[in-house]
Amino acid sequence: MNNQKEHLDNLSEIRSLMERSSKFLSLSGISGISAGIIAIMGVTAASIYQGYSFFERTRVTNLLKPTGGINMDFMLFFSIDAIIVIILALSTSVFFTMRKAKKRKLPVWDSPAKRLVWSLSVPLVTGGVFCLVLLRYSLVFLITPSMLIFYGMALINAGKYTHNEVSVLGLFEILLGIVALFFIGYGMLFWVIGFGLFHIIYGTFMYYKYER
């Protein structure tokens, strides 16, 4: 009888070691919340610049010149806005994740972390290049749906090396991206939902599940 309990203990120990050694579990829920808030601030800046709220349909005249081609002033503002959002979102995420790892006395840059970053970067960089090419052909209305779809695929790919919930978030981003394809012109609204709202909901859920 005692023997059986010992075997059961051994099995649960094996399972826990396999998970701890192959998955990066220090990803912080607060990172998700902060990334979501920063994304919403970024879109708000863009909507103020354009002069209408993100519930309204984006007018083509704002993005493209009447003679064809892209309105460069607008593009410059948009690019700077996007770069600031990406840098802020990434650095706050890294900060909160490092803080969580330190609190639990776990290494931050171990091999599961490296695999996580690699599995995220491949689809993300591919998506980034794809969106730049869309821009090159003035297909601006496809950029938000493409961003959501590629980001979702990156999350599903990375989910293997961290909490499974990341894959679920990825699935929702892809679904939203596909829906966005049918509502051309509402890019800002879908950005707020996908990169803002979804991140905040995901982050809050993860915080209450794993960090409280």
């Binding site: 051994n10 120990e13 094996i14 399972r15 070691l17 396999m18 701890r20 050694s21 192959s22 290494p107 171990d110 091999s111």
Partner: peptide, 21 residues
């Protein structure tokens, strides 16, 4: 048992990582 289960799910693990885990 622990060493084997860690090595089964990772390609390569160094001594110090095993020690910490």
């Amino acid at each position: 048992l622990g060493v084997m289960s860690i090595l089964l799910v990772n390609d390569r693990v160094d001594f110090n990582t095993l020690k910490k885990l």
